[in-house]
Amino acid sequence: MDSPTNKMVRICVLAVLGVVLNLIEPPMPAPVPGIKLGLANLMSVIGLYSLGTYSAIWITILRTITVNLFLGFDLRGFLSLGGGVVSALIMEAVYYFYKRETGIVAVSMLGGLMHNFTQWLMVLILLQQPYLVVYLPFLLLSGGVAGVFVGTTGVYTLRRLGGFISGKDTQP
């Protein structure tokens, strides 16, 4: 059951679930438009902790590209791709190097935080409007809160469905 194809299919299923979450998630009432709470990150976190390294980054890329196919590529897509990839990369790195020393909630919180931080940084570079600096604390805070929420949800999901998702149990 551990063939690359098997893993790929599972990654794709999680990515599709992420697309659904992404589409039904309303954007935050943030003054910097397009920045979302990042609930779709849930699928990346679940993927990372059930299917192992490289799954989070794949899920994120597949998810954001698919969502952009639905919504049309524009700056927001660019932003969500950037934020998603950076946050997934950081989570992957922490998972890869410090798997034993870290837990899901903390890693997911870091991911949420970095997700919003990256988006903010991109907007800042794009618009070069120094006023945007003042929104940083609120974006970081909301990213962190979303990350904790995602992480906690991930813990419970994995506890019940972890084996099913990774294919080690056939029954949920």
Partner: peptide
């Protein structure tokens, strides 16, 4: 701890 940190950050705000 994460919740405590976030809560205190909110209170701080």
């Amino acid at each position: 701890l994460p919740l405590i940190i976030l809560a205190s950050a909110l209170l701080f705000a």
